[in-house]
Design a protein around this nucleic acid. Structure first.
Lengths: 117, 117
DNA sequence: TTTATATATTTAATTAAATTATATATATAA
DNA sequence: TTATATATATAATTTAATTAAATATATAAA
């Protein structure tokens, strides 16, 4: 599957979804988790992920805590109240969109006439 | 729903899907049909649609017939053999992708621990 | 009658959101 | 000492859209 093509636009929503499931996550962890959950199909690149996290923080959607773990710097991100609301809205929005697209994709040839063809 | 955000990358596949259901369609018709099938959620802009149709024709995926209908120029697009194969592959690819994303989005909080959280 | 709306295609300018590449740094296994 | 994994950050580039502008006809409304 060439997911790259379809990823664009949904990264922010995926990140918000994962953060809504946990108290906090760090960037590398988010990327790894998405890869794992998608059976290696979706690889969030860091060049996309970190700017999104930065922007969400600037917008007041995320709060951060920096820590040293095993002598390496780590930056944890948590949803704020505003961020939790945004996550909920975005996830619901994307779910609806996926449904709409799916309905177009699964329409069988035999049904085409029925929906106005 | 703010579909604009999520549309990117899937337009080509939607176009190929619609064309795979019909002998031929013209640009305006494709845009109208997508709008109708998505209950006005997805509006393919012509600035995106026509360059995609042009490119697919250049790649040998589409053949065209220009006709005058009601004194207005109309350009019909049909899938070639190569185009039909591409349509099949692209639709299947997108379906799989949607499934993967949906599985991430629907994962309930209570299940998070189960999938390694 | 002139205005708005719908039909129809095309293309240039601009913007947004990615990818790719680069930089920096530590830990561990081969 | 080399490769791989962990971890963040950002600049340069590319891609794929949106927006806008150009062109043209038909029809309904004001």
């Amino acid at each position: 599957m060439n997911s790259k093509e379809y990823i664009r636009g949904i990264i922010k929503t995926l990140v918000l979804k994962l953060l809504s499931e946990r108290k906090r996550m760090y960037g590398y962890e988010i990327s790894s988790k998405v890869k794992e959950l998608s059976a290696n199909e979706i690889q969030l690149t860091y060049g996309a992920l970190y700017p999104i996290l930065y922007k969400l923080e600037q917008e007041g959607m995320l709060s951060t805590e920096s820590e040293m773990v095993d002598n390496r710097a780590r930056k944890y991100y948590s949803l704020t109240k505003k961020g939790r609301e945004m996550a909920k809205a975005k996830v619901s929005e994307l779910e609806q969109f996926l449904e709409v697209v799916k309905n177009i994709l699964i329409a069988p040839k035999t049904n085409f006439e029925a929906w106005g063809g």
